Structure formats: C-alpha cells, structure tokens
Amino acid sequence: MNKLLEVTDVRKIFGGSVRAVDGVSFSLAERETLALVGESGCGKSTVSRLILRLTDPTEGTIRFEGRDITHMSQGALKDIRREIQFVFQDPFSSLDPRMTAGEIVTEPLAIHGKVRNKAERRSTAEQLLQAVGLSAKHVESWPRQFSGGQRQRLGIIRAFALGPRLIVADEPVSALDVSVRSQVINILQDMQEEKGTAYLFISHDMATVKHMADRVAVMYLGKIVELAPKASFFAGPQHPYAESLLSAVPASHPNKRRKRILLAGDPPSPIRIPGGCRFHTRCPIAQDICKSQEPSLQLVGDNHLAACHFAKAWPIASRIGELQPATTTLAIS
C-alpha cells in the first residue's frame, strides 16, 4: 500500500530539557489503522499534535502524501488540514457550547468554503447527523442536550465532514461509558470502510486496540519500543513493557488468562531519562547490558520490530514468570 504518512526521527523537547518525544519513526498506509499505545505521559498525545502541526517538532521530518509538512507555513497548512482531522478525547469540552449541533458539524465546511448559504448548510448538517445515527431534528440542539456518546458522534462526523484521508483519534472512547463504547467504535469502523480513511488511533485500552488496529506501536518514555502487525503483537509481544501492558487485559476465557505482570516504580522523568535502555529501571529481566547500551528497533519477526536486547531470545512471558514479582501495578490510565 502507498504510504500516506511518514514520521522520521521526530523529537519534541520542551523547555530545553523535557524530551517528550525522542526519536519516533513510523509510517501509515492508506486505509490503515495504526494504534499508538502506552502509559499516560509516554508522549503519544504529543506525537498526535506534532502530526497535526498544533506544535512544532524540534527535530525530524513529517511527510503527508509525500509532502514535507514539518515546517510548512500556517497558510499552506490550511489545505493539508482538510486532509488530516482530529477526534478529541473529551466529547464535551471539544464542542463549542454556543453552537448548535448543525453549526458544529458544518463548521469545517464553512471555513473551507464548501457550503454556499444557510439552506445548504442546514441540509448538509442533517445528512451528516443521520450518517452517525442522530436525527435531523438534532440540527438545532445544543451540546448540553446530548449524552456523552451522542456528543462523541458529533465529534466524529465533524472530523469526517471534509472527507479527510487521515484522522487522528486521541482516546476517542476513553471518556465514554462501557455501554456506548462499542457503538462509537462501530461507527468509526463503518465510516472508515465507507470513506477509506486511515486512522492514527491513540489509546491505552488494549481491548479496544485489538478490535480496531491493523498494527500496534508501543511507546515508552518518548520512544517506540515495539511496532508490529496486530496478530503478531497480541500473539507474542517481544518487549517486556508491551508484555506488561497485555497482561492487564481481561481474558475472554479463564484458560487464556495471562500471568499479571506488576512493574516496580513509576516511569522516570523525561527530564532525567536513564542511560541504556530507558525501561531498565522497571524491567524484571534487565541485565548489565540494558543499563549501558540503548537497544534500537530490530526486526524480530515478519514486520515485527522490538527494541529489546533479549527479544526472541526466549519467551518474554516465561522469563518474567520465573522472576520475583514486583510490587507496584502498572498504571495505564
């Protein structure tokens, strides 16, 4: 498939010392869903803002449809932003309370001159609302009159209004009740199938990732430590941190339950990133080499990359299981 998005060795340093994103590289193909996962503070939301150019990278290159947008002017970015849209985590704060639902979902069209008059804008709004299971009569409703799931539907269809080729979805279902998450996920998948849009899907919910993703990228402390096709990743992660993330996912059957891996301590500060492998301070299988040499992403399987000195040496789950368990539960909220 053609590469739609290419991110190459991108870094973002805040205040001269906080390495929020520290050399991230990946690509995204047309119609593909790449899930970016990790603990809070790992840098995944910063990556999304760099791609959208809501913040400027310190180093590296971002290409969209082959065009370098890394340092593109705000004026030139207006055309790019028709093709890259965003779905926010909080469906309430992302909607203007002073605008009706009809105004919200057609605002991108109005900004880019795609609707000519008030009648056309209303008609388009009704069509958009119906596309995500809302009623045409909701055109005049205010955000406060909708449930959380309905508000997120507004956010989704607003993102799709311009027919973008890429949508960055930052925790799009984490603020929703479990009962409506599946509805919103189904809408995202249906819209992708109909429109052919690619997703960068940012999440800490591994069950949702398993349902949505084609590939999975795991971030830890500003870096991608594992990148793999979904089936390969869920069948056998090759980085201890990725294994710990998966161990927290509830099993569909008692016989398939993974051994829960509890990591000691909290992630180090991005101001004081440890030498060697940045995960070694919490890793239950760390050796001397991990403290002195930083592993690079290496091919460990079919399109499966991992940054671990001992990837594929022997099953990570069994290595961890033989060791004394740590005492602090991994937090991925």
Rank of each mutant, 00 (worst) to 15 (best):
I285G: 07
F146A: 06
T328D: 15
L129H: 08
P143F: 07
N255S: 15
G236F: 04
A213P: 12
Q183T: 12
D90S: 11
I273M: 12
I187V: 11
T327A: 14
K44A: 04
W142S: 11
P229W: 01
P237D: 05
R31A: 12
P325K: 04
C290A: 09
D9E: 15
I84V: 04
A136G: 15
G196A: 03
V18T: 15
A101K: 02
Q192M: 01
L330W: 08
A306L: 02
R144H: 15
L50H: 02
T328H: 15
V173T: 06
F279P: 10
T124H: 11
A311L: 01
S141R: 13
M219N: 01
V47D: 04
R144F: 14
P254E: 06
R144W: 13
L36G: 02
Y241P: 04
R181A: 07
I104K: 05
E243T: 09
A159H: 00
G102H: 08
S296C: 09
P172K: 00
F88R: 09
Q145N: 10
L245E: 04
S17D: 14
E65Y: 07
G38V: 10
G148E: 09
N2A: 14
S292V: 15
G41A: 06
F279I: 02
D190Y: 11
R319M: 14
M72I: 09
V168H: 02
T208E: 01
L4E: 01
W142R: 11
F86R: 05
E226T: 05
A235P: 14
R49S: 07
A264H: 13
R63Y: 01
L5K: 00
I224W: 00
T55S: 06
A110W: 11
D266G: 07
N186H: 12
A331D: 15
G16S: 06
A119T: 12
I104V: 06
A317M: 08
L162Q: 07
L52Q: 06
G66I: 01
G155A: 08
R116E: 09
Y199P: 04
A110C: 09
A29Y: 05
Q145T: 08
V249P: 06
T329K: 14
L245H: 05
L36D: 03
I84Q: 03
S174E: 08
W142M: 12
H304F: 10
S203C: 10
L28H: 01
H138K: 05
P267T: 01
P97Y: 04
A213S: 14
L52D: 04
E194C: 08
F279S: 07
K44L: 02
A286I: 11
G66F: 00
H138M: 13
S179I: 10
T327N: 15
F279D: 08
V168F: 04
T281I: 10
P325I: 01
G43H: 03
F279W: 11
